[in-house]
């Protein structure tokens, strides 16, 4: 590939590893944001404007803020004295390795299946994405919408329960 790709990839990896290795939880969250931003730029480099901007909007604008809020509201910003590593780090490592191997396997398997045509990268406009979402992929979209609605209602019920208890 080219130099910008390697620079951005290095930044993303650095951000990701900093998110795991830093001691202060808020610093971890901010480092995670760098990784998100790097991913967004990688999408943009692949001419996937919609995916790139949606990545920034959703991940930096909402998910990172949500993470940070969760940390602050649960007093997680105070670094524990006995180290940040959990006692069950071995099990965590095993789970992470398993997930990574599954994902890696899936990616490696799927590469030969794609037709390798580097010259004719199709220009995908937002219009096309919208049509695809509303046409071919309307069922997955609706299922995701139902799932999110269920999550939202669940959150409201969780929040309401406490109020009834105090009354």
């Amino acid at each position: 590939m080219n130099i910008p790709f390697y620079l951005i990839a290095a930044l993303t990896v650095l951000g990701g590893s900093a998110a795991v290795l830093l001691k202060n939880t808020v610093h971890c969250a901010l480092a995670l944001t760098i990784a998100f931003a790097g991913l967004a730029v990688l999408f943009l480099q692949l001419d996937a404007q919609f995916a790139g901007f949606a990545q920034i909007l959703v991940y930096i604008g909402a998910v990172a803020i949500l993470v940070v809020f969760a940390i602050l509201l649960t007093r997680g910003s105070e670094t524990p004295k006995d180290g940040v590593f959990s006692h069950t780090w071995l099990a965590g490592l095993a789970v992470a390795a398993a997930v990574f191997s599954v994902l890696g396997w899936a990616v490696l398997q799927s590469v030969p299946g794609l037709p390798y045509t580097p010259a004719a990268a199709p220009i995908v406009t937002v219009n096309d994405i919208g049509k695809a979402l509303m046409g071919r992929y309307v069922l997955p979209l609706e299922i995701v919408a139902v799932l999110l609605t269920a999550a939202l209602i669940g959150a409201v019920i969780v929040a309401m329960h406490e109020k009834e208890g105090t009354k």
Partner: peptide, 13 residues
């Protein structure tokens, strides 16, 4: 427009 809102969202951070 999406770009505008995306960079606008990062000011929150």
């Amino acid at each position: 427009l999406l770009f505008f809102f995306a960079v606008g969202a990062s000011t929150e951070l």
